[in-house]
Nucleic acid binder design. Structure first.
Lengths: 354, 354
DNA sequence: CCAGCGGATGTTTACGTAAACATTATGAGA
DNA sequence: TCTCATAATGTTTACGTAAACATCCGCTGG
């Protein structure tokens, strides 16, 4: 019996750093060729049950694990998806990322994270150039498209891309929440409750999601014959919502506010409370996102639920389809939203519609 | 001039799926050997400036990108860290992950995500066995240790591990927030404000973080000569905080509550408000985590700030040190917390201490 | 004037896997 | 009994890179 430690080599360098037994080692122990080990390892047919068992036993004994680098080199694919996103600070990005990771795992893909700390152009370029050397077959970008557009570094050839949370269906495959539909639902909900019009606390100007929510808000109002009040600008943060709320509290004719996300709605609620305006009696507030915490706001927040999990899932399936079929078509897939009724919205001055 | 498309091959299979030019292609175009290309690619000395420029030009022309699979195979390392975590649902995990990704990138490492959807034992085992085939040099586990302990699958040999958010310094290298210190600070702050004692809204029983916060709460109280009230159990969610709050609101002698996280504190605030108990006039509330939103709670929440970024950074540095030096020692690194004073805590019945 | 040195570059080889091809058994049908 | 097909297994080779070693060159110093 061979008494050398598992993974030892007869010839060559004493210390192979970290990497256990190879196919050759297993083959030797099992008394077969390494090709047979390969067949067993990949579950290929044409191996006797007896041989298979021997090989399996040898694998167990040596603690054999396929070397994924060698595999990737041979197969020409990594079975890995890259995810580019700047900062995981927003709830949506995280939920999407989580769904991507889960969905990718289900398809046998690993997920590699490419964080872009600061969303400057340099950082984005850096991420994309790093990407070139990265072991990924495809990339999912969770990022506002203008940053992607401005990137001077081109994507490595052969690396497929799907973009989430953006609108560039003409140049990329895009999966996104139906921002416009959700915003429209929010506005209609408030109008249906009898509010003459709806104010909008928008996200930052450079965000397409914010822009589309604001556009849809405006369109839904004019469609319904209501006069859009001046748009109030926030930056997604609760703090900015608070500041905007102090401002809005001074408008006595403001009875309904659609905040472009739940965090700003939170700040808004605080400001209104401080200024003695009751929600929903004096002012109705609706948010967008449906954070887990939103149900515990004061009062619990009526909001538009986004199905981030579905967005992530569709991103992965889209990108894997592209890998499989070398697909180069573009297009946008929209994931519907859902109105979640809680206690922050109530009847307006005109009374609820029948 | 050669008119074949870049990356084309004279011999062999027509369609090499996705993979551009190789070193050999660059070498041929530049009129040098592939070894020289390798030297240029890795920035090694011993190459004339003139040759270097020629090679670089050829690289650009062919869009050459080093094949990371081949590199990994040759070098025996992947320059990749795996991160195991179940669900990215908690603020802390995400912040830690973000810091890990950023810090890893700075060290030239990529980060691969290993999500464990449901924290069942099977799932954890699955993640660990997938890990064996995964292209990672080391693993950072963000997980309660009891799940790691119960995993029947052993880690692949040669893969270093660092655990965050846990306490297993005797068996693993651990980086964690100083849970006990933070909890002690929270309790002392409330006692200093003149509260006779402090109630505790704890996290779930199976969480070590929750357990340590609860233990420290108890210890700090007895140390100070105060009588610990019965512990109230939550599950980290705002909803559970709300339920607990309804319960606590009925105790007239409850003037100060230390919630084990900010989300439960949020629910607690809502319940107290609903029951007409003013914060901080009637009841003081302190949280733990310092979510970005906590400053916009009603009222803004006094809380214990956790430095997740530091935890992530230390995890990466720890694990890279281990990789470099084959370190097998264990030990725990604690990251200090910081008391963030806002408006949810105020003077107790005994009045603030001098 | 030549040995010898050192810098620049080329050649060989191995990393671990798996496709492609080659070889050896086994058994069925003529 | 002797093909010949077929299944089981072995052998060769290539994937792209980089370490190790080999070669070539010009120049310095004796």
């Amino acid at each position: 019996m061979d008494t050398r430690p598992a993974g030892g080599r007869t010839r060559g360098r004493a210390a192979r750093p970290r990497q256990g037994a190879s196919m050759a080692d297993v083959a030797q122990l099992a008394g077969v060729s390494s090709q047979t080990v390969s067949r067993v390892s990949n579950g290929f047919p044409g191996v006797t049950e007896e041989t298979r068992q021997q090989v399996m036993a040898a694998m167990r004994e040596l603690g054999y694990r396929p070397n994924s680098a060698a595999r990737a080199l041979k197969r020409g694919e990594f079975r890995t998806l890259g995810v580019i996103t700047f900062s995981l600070s927003t709830h949506g990005n995280i939920r999407t990322l989580e769904a991507i990771a889960t969905s990718a795992a289900r398809h046998g893909y690993a997920v590699t994270l490419l964080p872009v700390a600061v969303p400057t152009q340099d950082e984005v370029n850096g991420a994309f150039s790093r990407l070139g050397e990265l072991a990924v077959d495809a990339v999912i970008v969770i990022m506002e498209i203008h940053l992607l557009d401005a990137a001077t570094v081109s994507l490595p050839p052969g690396v497929q891309v799907v973009v989430a949370d953006s609108d560039a269906g003409d140049r990329y495959t895009v999966v996104d929440t139906d921002q416009a539909g959700g915003a429209r639902d929010a506005v209609r909900h408030l109008l249906d409750l009898g509010h003459h019009t709806v104010w909008h606390l928008a996200g930052p100007e450079d965000s397409f999601a914010a822009q589309r929510r604001a556009n849809a808000w405006h369109a839904a109002l004019t469609e319904a014959g209501a006069t859009p009040p001046p748009l109030v600008r926030g930056d997604w943060s609760a703090e900015s919502g608070y500041r905007a709320g102090l401002h809005l509290a001074d408008h006595p004719d403001c009875t309904a506010v659609f905040a472009a996300n739940d965090q700003m709605a939170l700040g808004l609620l605080r400001a209104l409370h401080e200024r003695g305006r009751r929600v929903p009696d004096d002012v109705s507030v609706i948010g967008f996102d449906d954070l887990p915490e939103s149900a515990s706001f004061l009062p619990p927040l009526t909001t538009i639920h986004q199905d981030f999990a579905e967005v992530g899932r569709l991103c992965v399936e889209g990108v894997i389809t592209k890998i499989r079929h070398g697909d180069t078509t573009h297009g946008t897939t929209l994931v519907p939203t859902r109105l979640v009724l809680r206690e922050s919205t109530g009847a307006g001055p005109a009374g609820p519609r029948p």
